[in-house]
Amino acid sequence: MRTPTAAGWVKPALFLLCLVPVIDLAHGAWTNTLGVNPLETLTRSTGTWTLRFLLLTLLVTPLIRVMRTPALLRYRRMLGLFAFFYASIHLGTYLWFDKFFDWQEIWLDIQDRLFITAGVTAFLLLVPLALTSTRRAQRALGNAWNRLHRLIYVATFAGLLHYFWLVKADYLEPIIYASIFAVLMLARIRKSSTVNVSGVS
């Protein structure tokens, strides 16, 4: 399984790299350099990083196929868990800085505001994926694990809706993220329709 090229240091290095955004934000918060509205910066930035990590996670499978490097699979779980990590901070900043844990207000928000509904849905869909991310859960669930983890498609879609619906007028960035998502999904559809024919992919 383990190729000698995937040296032991790659995974820890990638781990640290994935921490850079949160370290950067923590440093910015500490030195008060997150701009005029730092709490908003925290929420926005962690939301964007959640989406980026979801897309990075979705990138692994097509990349393995194109580059023929199955070794990349060992980094997918970590990327997915970092998506959940940033999503958790993102949700946390909303619950704390926006609503100050006023659960009644939060419930009204979920009902009244479509972008909140979509965002909370995306987060809730990620929870079972994070919980079943261990090797043990993977073995115990067998084939069901693969089916369950297809929820990441729905979660990312809900995350994109969340982004579209919160934007006031400038849709450029959500369109870019949605386009990347579309490409990554298309790569999967093409694979599943050609894999049986050619046997290799």
Partner: peptide
Amino acid sequence: MLIRIPKRS
């Protein structure tokens, strides 16, 4: 590009 440089940078 997937990764955008953070605004602070």
